[in-house]
């Protein structure tokens, strides 16, 4: 129970940070950080809690983004409904993709998911009549049942409850009876089977839930920016989100937030300073990954305890 109060303090502290964030950095970047963090958590749910490294999560982030953007623009759906549709579409897509990919582990699982994501990329590019091809879906309105959320600052606060709901959903899943079985499968799948757990079914449910979370983040991202483009489905998007998870530390959830914040903040700051911002970002990220092998979050979280020990010694 010793961890309870620090945890509550962190949740309250984070909520305060989330509320004042658009006053510190501009609100588009603030929302980007929160949404990429949610996307990263969906990947961490698989990597950190089931031991499955998906390299095709752009399919769910981008696929949901297209569905939500099209429904918001063509049917003029309020953004929470469009996002819900995006979530459901991502989950529906995840059923066959998950069914076929969870039969493999490790690098093979990563490659199968990547292959499916690439198929979706080309499919969306080909269906120009619906998706706009290389132009994407443009002019997506931000609608909320008559309430004006057109300004980015307003949309940030309108979307915040849904984002927090997404965080809570991931947190609950990892700390449910289901989450315990996932941890068992990650540590030793054969033994979990010997206990009578049909492990493929568990992995599939985790995969579909993860896709739904990624879909929520992607839907809000498309509506927030007012467009859905092929970038969202590109394999580099899958790579970026994996990078965020590894940077922050797998199996922590908080790490996803730290990883997303660092990657996006670096890109944003450096792109105004240098042409070679990606190269500089890359160099900094390599330094962080080598310097903090267990991920930034675990290393940072261990700091207070270490400081106390050092004080006690002197």
């Amino acid at each position: 129970m010793s961890g309870r109060y620090p945890r509550i303090a962190m949740v309250v502290g984070s909520a305060v940070v989330a509320l004042v964030l658009p006053r510190v950095i501009y609100s588009v970047l603030a929302l980007d950080i929160l949404l990429w963090a949610l996307f990263a958590m969906s990947v961490d749910l698989l990597v950190g809690y089931v031991g499955l490294l998906s390299f095709g999560h752009a399919a769910f982030w981008g696929g949901a983004a297209y569905v939500a953007a099209l429904l918001a623009r063509d049917l003029r759906l309020a953004f929470p409904l469009a996002a819900l549709a995006g979530v459901l579409a991502a989950m529906a897509l995840a059923v066959p993709v998950g069914y076929l990919s969870i039969r493999r582990r490790g690098i093979y699982f990563a490659m199968v998911t990547l292959a499916f994501a690439q198929m979706l990329f080309y499919l969306v590019n080909e269906l120009r009549g619906v998706t706009g091809g290389e132009n994407g879906v443009q002019g997506v309105p931000r609608l909320l049942w008559g309430v004006s959320v057109t300004r980015p600052g307003d949309f940030y606060y309108a979307a915040l409850p849904l984002v927090l709901l997404g965080y809570l959903a991931v947190y609950r899943v990892t700390r449910s009876p289901f989450g315990h079985v996932l941890a068992a499968i990650r540590d030793n799948e054969a033994r979990a089977q010997a206990l009578g757990y049909p492990t493929p079914r568990y992995k599939l449910v985790a995969f579909v839930l993860s896709a739904g979370i990624a879909g929520l983040a992607g839907s809000l991202y498309a509506i927030g920016h007012g467009f859905a483009s092929l970038d969202l489905l590109h394999w580099t998007t899958s790579g970026t989100v994996v990078l965020m998870v590894v940077l922050g530390g797998t199996g922590t959830l908080w790490g996803s937030l730290v990883g997303a914040a660092i990657v996006l903040f670096l890109r944003d700051q450096l792109s105004s300073v240098t042409e070679a911002s990606d190269a500089v970002t890359g160099a900094i990220l390599i330094a962080i990954v080598l310097g903090f092998r267990r991920g930034l979050w675990r290393s940072l979280a261990a700091l207070p305890a270490r400081a106390v020990r050092r004080l006690a010694r002197t």
């Binding site: 609950r172 449910s176 009876p177 315990h180 540590d187 757990y197 568990y202």
Partner: peptide
């Protein structure tokens, strides 16, 4: 399971006889 306590191992085995396992929405 390397990262579970001894008690958690036994709980996991006891839980397997119930339908709790797939309840991702329940609290632990």
């Amino acid at each position: 399971f390397e990262q579970l306590s001894a008690l958690e191992h036994v709980l996991l085995a006891l839980q397997s006889a119930t339908d709790l396992g797939l309840r991702f929405w329940s609290s632990e």
